[in-house]
Design a protein around this nucleic acid. Structure first.
Length: 427
RNA sequence: GGAGAGAUGGCUGAGUGGUCGAAAGCACAUCUUUGCUAAAGAUGCGUAGGAGUAAUCCUACCGAGGGUUCGAAUCCCUCUCUCUCCGCCA
């Protein structure tokens, strides 16, 4: 959520920055400002009436004690009460309307975010390694999954539906090994505190991180309980400190959480994609930072580096791209995507999206900290996948497949997997 | 799921219809004094919103939301959470 004061003080700046996302957003700023001004007028009147009521009520109390007749004043206050109700409804309605509009407004892209309108304009920042060459035709993960009895898409469709998968045997073991590898890496090498959160959250949490109210159709919902299945661990983990005032010395906070993620992918064009690329449920290890405003931009670089380390240790070629203003997510101020090379797909797959949200999420969830002067300030939040599992699985088995059909387990993962390769014997 | 108890400022805790945003203590900050591993005293110390150039003033908030009343931390209703006991269960 943007600061209403920023809109009041610098409406042109806000409009310009929003227009770098989408030209249609700028008019919303004037709409919000009109409501804000009406809201304040109503609020001022309400407060004046409340002040009158408080004063007269006190006089009635004192008058009664002294045995005076207070009925005239009581009638007057009754009239004031009616007007307070009327003007109060007006003020509350304007307040709700203003909040709804502000919640539907995306974050301002950071100055450091490259200007552009579509994904084609996302600049590549760097590459690590090179795409491996094979002296045989590399199989894709679907074929490899079938050969080793690792992935059962039919079973997933049978018990739940399309875009659900059953991992079995070495596949299930590899998935579990990757989860442990990722958590161990981030907690022991990068200093993160491990979190295992609930997978169902209240609507307020999704409002806090920005999925609600705009993207409710992308999240699984249990109406009887008004609870939502999390689309990412970002939601419960960032909301851990919702409506709190953290102490200065508590920052920065670094959390790493493994959770399954659930996404309806309503209207998604890619849902027809074969294999593990786009699923309704997938595993992910998420990294969350809560920082001061002064350190959040540096933290984004650090966070991205932590996610990259995963791919380096697993010997997977990747590239880092920087999302342009027209392509960054709703709440993001600046985002790096990490895309890993998948030889069987002959394509780069997004396995991590690392973003700083500035104070956008923190203001939505009223997450503050006390600075060195003892002043309450809105914190900054960041998160990035460290990394998504299903696509990492794809890149891993496709990259490390051998001519004889076996799959080499990278050195760094062997301790967790318990073997140095997946062969047909490992079924 | 059933029964009971509770929810007040950073913490403890008083307050059952009228200057209560809220006593007192602790903690914290600044200052003063005596002095030495501390003690005493003074002052200050919640959040949000609104008006004003500003000093400052006003409003709201005692778990949340409604209601009664001229007036609610206080009375009534609903909900949430915590604790205890019972049931059920991994």
């Amino acid at each position: 959520m943007l600061d209403i004061r920023l809109l009041r003080e610098s409406p042109e700046l806000v409009k310009q920055r929003l227009a770098t996302r989408d030209a249609a957003l700028a008019p919303l700023v004037d709409q919000i400002l009109a409501i804000d001004s009406a809201r304040r007028a109503a609020e001022t009147e309400r407060q004046q009436l409340q002040s009158d009521r408080n004063r007269l009520s006190k006089e009635i109390g004192i008058g009664r004690k002294n045995g005076e007749d207070t009925s005239a004043k009581e009638t007057e206050v009754r009239g004031i009460g009616t007007r307070i109700d009327e003007i109060g409804q007006e003020a509350d309605a304007a307040d709700t309307q203003q909040r709804d509009l502000l919640l539907a407004l995306p974050n301002l892209p950071h100055d450091a975010c490259p200007i552009g309108t579509t994904a084609e304009e996302n600049p590549e920042v760097r590459r690590w390694g090179t795409a491996p060459a094979y002296d045989f035709e590399p199989k894709d993960h679907i074929a490899l999954g079938q050969a080793h009895g690792m992935l059962d898409f039919e079973a997933g469709a049978k018990i739940t539906g399309s875009a659900f998968v059953v991992y079995r045997g070495p596949g299930a073991r590899l998935e579990r090994a990757l989860i442990n590898f990722l958590l161990d890496l981030h907690t022991t090498q990068h200093g993160y505190t491990e979190i295992s959160p609930p997978l169902l959250v209240k609507p307020e949490c999704l409002v806090g991180t920005g999925q609600l109210p705009k993207f409710g159709d992308q999240v699984y919902h249990s109406p009887e309980d008004d609870l939502y299945l999390i689309p990412t661990a970002e939601v419960p983990v960032t909301n851990l400190h919702r409506e709190e005032i953290l102490k200065n010395e508590q920052l920065p906070i670094h959390y790493a959480a493994y959770t399954p993620c659930f996404r309806r992918e309503a209207g998604s064009a890619g849902l027809g994609t074969r294999g593990l690329i786009r699923m309704h449920q997938f595993d992910k290890v998420e990294l969350v930072h809560i920082t001061t405003p002064e350190t959040s931009m540096d933290a984004l670089e650090t966070l991205t580096g932590h996610a990259e380390k995963v791919l380096q240790l697993l010997g997977l070629h990747y590239r880092v791209i920087e999302l342009c203003t027209g392509d960054i997510g709703f709440g993001s101020a600046k985002t790096y995507d990490i895309e890993v090379w998948a030889p069987g797909q002959k394509a780069y797959l997004e396995v991590s999206s690392c973003s700083t949200f500035g104070d956008y999420q923190a203001r939505r969830m009223n997450l503050r900290y006390k600075d060195a002067e003892g002043k309450n300030r809105i914190a900054h939040t960041l998160n990035g996948s460290g990394t998504a599992l299903a696509r990492l699985f794809v890149a891993l088995v496709e990259t490390h497949q051998q001519a004889d059909g076996t799959i080499l387990i990278p050195e760094a993962l062997r301790r967790h997997y318990g073997a140095d390769q997946i062969s047909t014997l490992s079924k």
